[in-house]
Design a protein around this nucleic acid. Structure first.
Lengths: 136, 136
DNA sequence: TTATATTTGCAACAAGGTTGCAAATATAGT
DNA sequence: ACTATATTTGCAACCTTGTTGCAAATATAA
């Protein structure tokens, strides 16, 4: 709880109920959540707009990040502390069984060669497979 | 043009105007297109629904594939012939300058180690940077 | 305690995508 | 050629995700 307050202060964000609840929800969730999943989990029923605006603020300040899945689905998750400022190699894992999305962002990986004239700046890798819970 | 007819036949899809036009558009386009970009380029004005249904058919048969970008934007592109049946390593390039999306699907790459219990099945890598046109 | 800035809710909207149903086309079967 | 059947198309309606404008509420500063 104190880490949430600290995180807000570090980013010059006032301690509003919606912000606190969203951060609490995201940090308690084991995996990345969609906006509607987040809103369902909030204690108080904030308006959709308010939640979206709060998420956008968090995204801008890199407090959270978004993961885009196949078919345009978007999930939101806390940005791991070590990732600030955000590195260039991002890894996420999508479980084909339970649809859970996990940040594996601290794992570096080798990047492929590209055709002549293409210069890479950063890399987003989405690994599909079975997560630890679904394999147990 | 004959390759398009052949592609349809190979997938047991009848040669309907909408199918032919969409495949023509996608194979002429240098980069992946969104549904609205596709529809704008079609000679005849097909209904949105028809285009979506056609795209869905093509996706199911792996004639085309979709690429999900940051923020939930989805683009569609021909599946390169060599990729059928689709492999496990997919690479796409997003140009930060012109927003073009290119398939680099024939490039293999090394995949990262994963936490215990996570078993990978396939990999989608989106490389961000500057494309060959924007660097020229 | 007034003045100002921030946050919230509401209504409305836009884009992407889907579904149901009926009209139009094509494909067979005889 | 002529029904009978299946496929494709268009239209209207709808859902979800996300945004914008504006006014009310709340917090912050002077």
């Amino acid at each position: 709880m104190n880490d949430i307050y600290a995180l807000l202060e570090k980013n010059n964000l006032s301690r509003t109920p919606c912000r606190v609840e969203i951060l609490k929800t995201l940090s308690q969730a084991g995996s990345a959540l969609s906006e509607s999943e987040i809103r369902d989990k909030l204690e108080y029923n904030f308006d959709r707009t308010t939640v979206y605006r709060t998420l956008r603020n968090f995204l801008n300040q890199n407090v959270i990040h978004s993961i885009s899945l196949e078919g345009g689905e978007v999930r939101y998750a806390m940005t791991p502390a070590k990732d600030k400022p955000h590195g260039t190699h991002h890894v996420h894992f999508y479980c084909n069984n339970c649809s859970g999305v996990y940040c594996i962002s601290h794992k570096p990986f080798d990047t492929p060669g590209l055709p002549v004239g293409f210069y890479p700046e950063n890399f987003d890798l989405l690994v599909h497979g079975k997560c630890n819970k679904c394999n147990a």
